[in-house]
Design a protein around this nucleic acid. Structure first.
Lengths: 180, 180
DNA sequence: GGTTGCATGTAAATGGTTACATGATTGT
DNA sequence: ACAATCATGTAACCATTTACATGCAACC
C-alpha cells in the first residue's frame, strides 16, 4: 500500500491539503496505522492530480502563502475502492522500544525503569490524542479502527504498569552486597 | 535501528545462523517487534564478522551444505549495549489491514466480515506462535516483551470479536427492501 | 531573537525488499 | 512430481526518509 493509496483514503474522508494529510499520519486518524512524510505525500498528490484521481483547488490565505486543497474525483474514489479489494500486505511493525526492552537485562535497572515509564507516558499521550479526535463526522468503520487502536494501547499500558516493578526487580544484577 | 543491531541482539540470545535469525523475525521471539529479510541479514552478519563484532563457526552437516553459526564477541556485546543506550526511534507501524478496515464503509458488508474474521484468525495464530515460544532459557526481559505482545494481540481479538457484528451491521448500505 | 506552526516542494541518500542463483533432503 | 525446509549469498530495484530551500506569522 503506497502513499498514493494512503492519500486517496485521506481525501475520501474529506478535502485536505498535503500539510493536513501529513498531520493525519502524525497526530490524527491515521497515526496508528501508517505513516508518511512530506517528501512522499507531496509527490503522491501531484501524481494523483496528474492521473485525474484528485483535483487541487488553490485557496488564498491572508498573510500566508496559498494552499492547495485536494479533492477526490469519482475516478479517484473508484481507484480507492479497487485498491481496498487487493489483499493487504502483512503488517509491518518496527519498534526500537520493544527491541531495547527485550534486552533490559543488559541495562542498569534504573534506566530500564525510566524507559518503561517513558513508554507508558507515550502510550497515554497517544490515547489522549486518539480520544480527542473528532469522529462524529466520520463513518463507523473509522470509529472501529480508532477504537481498536485505543483498546490495544490501553492493554499495553495496563500490562506495563502491572509488570513494571517485577520487571525492574528481576533485572537486578546478581551482585551480592559487599560489607564496607 | 538497523539490521546489524538487530542481529547483534539475536546473537546475544544465543549462537545462530542467518537462517535461524530470519526465523526469529518470522515466527519467533522478534516477530512482533521488527522484521528483516535474508537480503539484509546475510550482509549484516558478514559486516558484523568483518568488524570483529561476531565470529562465524562453520558447521558441517550430513547431506546438507555447511552452515555458519555466528557467535557474538565481547566487542559485539559492547556494541549492542551501546546501541541499546541511544534513544529509540519512534515506532513505525504500517498496517494495510487497519487502513482497509477504516474504509469498511466502501466495501460490501459480507466482504468486511470476512476481512475482520480473517484478521481475528491471524491474531490467534500469532498468539499461538508466541505462546509456544520456549522462553525458559531467556532472560525475564524477553518474557516481558513476549507478554506485552500477547496482551496486545489478545486485546485486539477481544475488541474485534465484541464489535464485529455491530461493525458489519452499521455498514449495511442504506438500500431499502424492495417488495418482489 | 528563537522556536513553533503553517505551507509547498525537490534531490540525494538510504536502507531494505524482491528476485535470482544453487542444491540436497524430506514429506505429500 | 512437487512443495517445503534447510542453507547462503548477490544485485537490481524501489519507496521513503532526510535534508535542504523558502517564507511569513504568532508566541515566548
Amino acid at each position: 500500500m503506497d502513499v498514493k493509496t494512503l492519500c486517496l483514503g485521506a481525501l475520501q474522508l474529506g478535502d485536505a491539503t498535503g500539510y493536513e494529510i501529513k498531520k493525519m499520519f502524525e497526530d490524527g486518524l491515521f497515526s496508528h496505522l501508517h505513516q508518511a512524510s512530506f517528501g512522499s505525500i507531496y509527490p503522491a498528490l501531484a501524481r494523483l492530480e496528474h492521473e485525474g484521481l484528485a483535483i487541487s483547488i488553490p485557496v488564498a490565505q491572508e498573510g500566508r502563502p496559498d494552499k492547495k486543497v485536494y479533492r477526490l474525483t469519482a475516478k479517484g474514489h473508484e481507484a480507492l475502492v479497487e485498491a481496498l479489494q487487493s489483499p493487504p500486505m502483512p503488517d509491518r511493525q518496527r519498534s526500537d522500544f520493544l527491541f531495547i526492552l527485550a534486552f533490559g537485562h543488559l541495562l542498569p535497572p534504573t534506566r530500564l525503569r525510566t524507559i518503561i515509564e517513558a513508554r507508558i507516558a507515550w502510550y497515554r499521550a497517544c490515547i489522549g490524542r486518539m480520544e480527542s479526535c473528532d469522529l462524529s463526522r466520520h463513518p463507523p468503520s473509522v470509529r472501529l479502527v480508532n477504537g481498536l487502536g485505543l483498546a490495544v494501547y490501553r492493554a499495553a499500558v495496563e500490562y506495563l504498569e502491572m509488570n513494571l516493578d517485577a520487571a525492574v526487580a528481576d533485572e537486578q544484577p546478581a551482585q551480592p552486597f559487599v560489607a564496607e
